[in-house]
Design a protein around this nucleic acid. Structure first.
Lengths: 168, 168
DNA sequence: CTATCCTTTCAGTATATACTGAAAGATATT
DNA sequence: AATATCTTTCAGTATATACTGAAAGGATAG
């Protein structure tokens, strides 16, 4: 399961898309490599296959684990650590969504609200109306996302709804 | 409407969030500045207020126009170009979504499909099943997004649905 | 037509981000 | 407890990304 031209293309393309998720190229390439691997992989294999230093590979694996998109597994009789991807693709999506929201959306919404709450400014009506509209939009978005992420079951229901709404 | 502490904070925070949208700090800061401006702004004003070179400001404005989140307006009697934000916040959201999808999601989905279509590989069942599941997930996501973005009216309907589903 | 005002371009430079590899830290093996 | 195997850390370095400012390119005014 290695090294056809398409595999390389997939790994690099996944790497590019990684930016969409806010993860860096190496992380995404490692993730792609793991998707294409039949068996659990170890640091050495990754390092050699993708021409990445062990140090970097180690840091990327740690970060991928933080994001919850891969897991460390133990193989009896083996001393090394092995890794597998989170097998549930939607779950993988959610985890990324949660992480990004927490890191970048929430603080921005906070600041927006603070700005609106601010009393003594020389705010012009036009601008405060605009801020109000933005806050409403963000807030709606926030509620939808929270609803979506609140538990497994809710997510599944929403996905099913979506599938019907936009059938193949 | 300038330079309270909160305004600066808002601008910088918006700048951070910009990364979420795949736009760089300067672009996002300029956008934030424009949100807070009562009247159309020009290049010079931006450059001075945000301590950005005119060259950079010019490039950022161009890019923001490409994304469709700001518009150039003409003010009679004025020689300079002026700019305003897209006033419809949801529309702004959509434009960013469309752009990002086009740039980063679509190519990845393409590659994924190519990889699946590939005939003569030594693909292991486990891996091809996994790829199949990923394709399904991505494809569903793609259809939802397309549905959402296909026209103004559909978007509005979906937003209304969401608002009811996740009320304030 | 030419001077003035404004915008854009882009080579060079600065800054931020990612990566390497050697050393230290862990954990298992004998 | 010494050795071997594997992982993590991090200072230094490389690479990628963003920014500057001077020069060229337009547009309008006189």
């Amino acid at each position: 399961m290695l090294k056809s031209e398409e595999f390389v293309k997939f790994i690099e393309s996944w790497g590019t898309m990684g930016v969409l998720w806010g993860i860096n190229r190496s992380m995404a390439r490692i993730h792609a490599f793991m998707i294409l691997s039949e068996n659990p992989v170890d640091l050495d294999e990754i390092s050699k296959a993708l021409y990445i230093s062990r140090g970097n590979a180690s840091m990327c694996l740690k970060e991928l684990r933080n994001w919850g998109v891969i897991q460390r597994v133990h193989i009896s009789g083996e001393r090394r650590d092995f890794y597998v991807i989170e097998p549930d693709v939607w779950k993988m999506f959610f985890r990324i969504a949660v992480e990004r929201k927490k890191r970048e959306f929430d603080p921005a919404l906070d600041t927006l609200r603070q700005l609106i709450a601010e009393k003594d400014s020389k705010k012009v009506k036009k601008v405060s109306d605009r801020l109000q509209r933005i806050e409403e939009t963000f807030s709606t978005f926030d509620r939808i996302l929270n609803k979506f992420l609140e538990n497994e079951k809710t997510s599944r229901i929403m996905i099913e709804f979506f599938k019907n709404f936009a059938p193949r």
